[in-house]
Amino acid sequence: MPARSTVTARQARLGAELRKLRERAGPSIREASEITGVAQSKISMMEAGRVGVSAERVRHLASQYACDDPALVEALVAMATERGPGWWEEYREAVPTGYLNVAELEHHAAELQTFQGAHIPALLQTEEQMRGVFASSVPLLSEEQREVRVRFRLRRQEVLNKIGYAALIHEAALRIRAADSKVARNQLLHLIEQSEQPQVAIRIVPFEADGFAGISAPVVYANGPVSQLDTALVDTAHGGAYLGAEAQLHRYRVVLRTIEKMALGAVDSRDFIHRLVHQM
C-alpha cells in the first residue's frame, strides 16, 4: 500500500495512539518488529499515519502490546476501518486544510464543548456573521473565496443535529461586531434561538466574573468514544493544535470546568443575551 500524500488530523491521531500502545508496553520499534512480525518501516509509517491499518492488524498489535482495554481497542479498530471520504473532502482544494481537520473532528465527536473569548463560535454563527468575519481575513479573500468558506461553515453546522454541543462564550464576543448593528442583533437573536434547542447549551461569562485573567485561548473539546480518544483543539497564532496526551486533556478539562463555574446558568445566559438585544 503506497504512503498517503496527505495525512489528516484523525489519521495522525490513530497513528499516535498505536505509538502510545507500543511505548506503554516498552519495546522500541525494532523490538516491536520482532515481537509482532511487522516490518520496522511499516510500524513507523503506521505510527505516523502515513499508511492505513486493518482491523486485524490493530487487534494484533494491541494483543502483542498487552493492551487490556477492549473498549479502547475497538474504538481504534473503528477509526482504522472508516471507509469513504467525509463530506469535507469535497472542499479539499477550496479551503485551508485546517478547516477540513476541524470538520472531521466535529463529525466524529460524541459531544463538543467550546470556550470562545472574542468570537461567536463558528457552529453558532449566522450566515451574515460569517461573511463579516471572512471579510476581515488577513490576507484579504476574494468574494468567491469568502462564499466558499461560508458554505463550508454552514455545512459544518449540520453536526448540531446529531450531537450535544456546549458553548461557553465571553461577553466580549457578544459585543464585538463582525459587521454592522443589524448583523450583530440578528446574531444575538440566533444565539437565543439556538439555546432553546435541547442539544445546545449556551452559557455566558460576563465581564464582572471574578478571577478570569489568564483564561483566554479559544478551545474546542471533542469527546471521543472513550476518554483516551478525546481531543482538545486549541487556537494558536499559527493554526489549531490538536492535543491528545492525557496530561493535556486533563489541563483543558480543568480549564473548561473553571470557566463553567464563572459562567451564568443557561436561563440567566439567555436573559443576558435578551438584555443586550434590547440595548441595541
Rank of each mutant, 00 (worst) to 15 (best):
G211Y: 13
L188P: 12
R270C: 11
D68P: 09
M130R: 05
R275P: 12
R92C: 02
F115M: 00
P96Y: 01
T231A: 04
Q125W: 06
H190W: 07
L174A: 04
A25Q: 06
P218Q: 00
S137M: 08
R257Q: 15
I202A: 01
D210E: 15
L276A: 05
V150I: 09
E196A: 13
S227N: 10
L21R: 10
R270Y: 06
A172E: 03
L105Q: 05
T6D: 12
Q279M: 13
L233W: 08
A172Y: 06
A103G: 09
H278F: 07
E111I: 02
D68H: 13
R24V: 00
A172T: 12
G84V: 03
S136W: 08
Q248C: 02
H278Q: 15
H60A: 09
Q125N: 04
G84N: 07
G84P: 14
V77G: 13
D235N: 03
E127Q: 14
A179I: 04
S5G: 12
G239M: 03
E104C: 14
L124V: 04
R185I: 09
G37I: 08
L124F: 02
R253A: 07
M130F: 08
E143G: 15
A94M: 11
W87H: 05
I176M: 11
V150L: 06
T36W: 09
G37Q: 10
A25E: 02
D69R: 12
Q197S: 07
A173I: 03
V150E: 04
E34N: 10
M262W: 04
V205G: 04
C67R: 13
E74V: 03
S216L: 09
L141R: 06
Q228S: 14
V226L: 05
V234I: 10
V234L: 00
A16C: 08
A232R: 04
P96E: 00
N101D: 15
G132S: 02
E193K: 13
A66S: 13
G244P: 09
V51P: 15
G244C: 06
Y65V: 11
Q113G: 10
L61F: 03
V205K: 05
H119D: 02
T36Q: 08
D180L: 03
E208Y: 10
S195I: 05
A39E: 14
E208I: 12
R156F: 00
V226M: 05
Q129Y: 15
L276G: 13
T258G: 09
Y165D: 01
I163R: 09
H190D: 01
E127T: 13
H238D: 10
Q116L: 00
G265D: 12
A173M: 04
